[in-house]
């Protein structure tokens, strides 16, 4: 029985999504999770990340299929609109549940 429980804990840890687990990407995902969409500048201001840093993390999240990046013209000004994809939302929820589970299992 004990072996089963230990196995479950190890499985929970190994199931943590490493793409989301990086602090800057976690923050980006959290911001995009609580809004419908935001543009690059809004996310830059809110997260406090540098332009290059934000850009590279967004590319990784896009590659993972978690973030959709769209270019639009609003009043002739180009804007980069960002939103979570359906799988991005699901991945974030799963990450949150996994982390809760792992942390709840910690002794003390």
């Amino acid at each position: 029985m004990k072996e089963n429980k230990d196995g479950e804990k190890i499985r929970s840890l190994s199931e943590i999504d490493r793409v989301i687990h990086e602090p800057a990407r976690l923050l980006i995902m959290a911001y995009l999770f609580v809004v419908e969409s935001a543009d690059f500048l809004f996310l830059e201001r809110q997260t406090g990340l540098t332009r290059g840093n934000l850009s590279s993390h967004l590319s990784k999240l896009e590659d993972a299929g978690y973030v959709e990046i769209k270019k639009e013209f609003v009043d002739k000004i180009p804007r980069t609109l960002l939103s979570l994809t359906v799988s991005g939302r699901e991945a974030f929820k799963a990450y949150r549940d996994n982390m809760k589970h792992v942390l709840d299992e910690l002794p003390g």
Partner: peptide, 18 residues
């Protein structure tokens, strides 16, 4: 990056920013 990941607070912060 000293954000406390309280999602409700994060949404409130984003809204207040506007």
């Amino acid at each position: 990056m000293k954000e406390n990941l309280n999602l409700k607070e994060l949404e409130r912060k984003a809204y207040r920013a506007t």
